[in-house]
């Protein structure tokens, strides 16, 4: 098991290298001059040139990438063009807000989604099943920005139950969490339902009933654990998309997280900042998927370790 973890962590390095290269190239090849942006609209040519030199933007691209990589290895993600503060500090400062939002949204999606899916699967084609189906269709098709504004309009503007923006209390967390998590509630509900229906037709479910277990216990104990592997897989896949969604949700609800930091960075053409954010997101996604893979062998004893 330890060997396997070490192997998997080693494999992360080329993955992250590829990500860093891709991000670096994209950001340096898009039109626009980051130095000019950083200097401001009225800056003199000399000042712009100075900034260009200062950030190494006058060097050949391959050399810039080499320097960049060397710095990353030392834990230095460079300085923000705009604030002149280390990018790593900016990320660390904003990270808790994003992790909080993404974590709660994922929790919301998994708990509510799986519960709805399981309940639907217990009585296929019943009224409950149809209701869950309808809701998930709605959840999947509603765009995040639309859903967010709608919720804000209803619960903040009309009913005045919840704050429309900002971060601080648990109440601030409610609307962003729902907005970010709802599409994934729908997805988890659908997958949980279909996986559970497959599992419930297995022979061992009949055995469990023949032992005298009531249907509830059969479903929640014997079936759900067997349905867990595909659901956990989904968790890995959707964590990345959820972080992508966080960028939008943070912007809608003025949530002071990494997503907004990155959006601001993109607008300002703050290359170092954007690179750092994307690298952070990529690392988070890759790590979550590693944890997911390790979870398989915990959940299903048939999957060999190592």
């Amino acid at each position: 098991m330890l060997d396997y973890i070490a192997y998997r962590v080693a494999v992360l390095i080329p993955t992250l290298l590829a990500v860093s290269l891709a991000v670096f190239l994209v950001l340096h090849l898009v039109p626009g001059d980051p130095a000019r942006n950083a200097a401001g609209p009225d800056a003199a040519e000399e000042d712009i040139e100075l900034i260009r030199e200062q950030f190494g933007l006058d060097q050949p691209l391959w050399r810039q990438y080499g320097i960049y990589l060397g710095n990353i290895v030392r834990g230095d993600l460079g300085e923000s063009f705009r604030t002149r503060r280390p990018v790593l500090d900016e990320i660390v400062r904003r990270m808790p807000a994003t992790l909080e939002l993404a974590g709660f949204a994922m929790l919301f999606a998994v708990v509510v989604g799986v519960a709805l899916g399981v309940v639907a699967s217990m009585r296929p084609n019943s009224a409950i099943d149809s209701a869950v189906n309808g809701l998930s269709a709605l959840g999947i098709s509603a765009p995040v920005f639309f859903l967010g504004l709608l919720l804000m309009l209803l619960f903040s503007a009309r009913l005045q139950w919840l704050p429309p923006s900002g971060r601080g209390t648990m109440a601030h967390l409610v609307l962003p969490t729902i907005t970010l998590g709802l599409p994934y509630v729908a997805t988890f509900a659908r997958v949980a339902r279909s996986t559970m229906l497959d599992v419930l037709s297995e022979d061992y479910i009949r055995t469990a009933r023949a032992k005298g277990l009531v249907w509830r216990r059969v479903v929640w104990r014997h079936a759900l654990i067997n349905a867990a592997v595909p659901l956990v897989t989904l968790l890995g896949v959707y964590f990345g998309r959820l972080l992508g969604g966080a960028v939008i949700v943070e912007t809608i609800f003025a949530w002071p997280g990494l997503g907004r930091l990155m959006v601001d960075g993109i607008i300002q053409r703050d290359i170092n900042l954007v690179q750092g954010c994307i690298l952070f997101f990529a690392t988070a996604i890759v790590l979550v998927n590693l944890v997911v893979d390790l979870l398989y062998s915990v959940l299903d004893p048939r999957i060999a370790r190592g």
């Binding site: 297995e202 022979d203 061992y204 009949r206 055995t207 469990a208 014997h222 654990i225 067997n226 959940l299 299903d300 004893p301 048939r302």
Partner: peptide, 10 residues
């Protein structure tokens, strides 16, 4: 079928 009659995860 004794294989499929037993729950694989318990």
């Amino acid at each position: 079928e004794p294989m499929s009659a037993l729950n694989p995860v318990f």
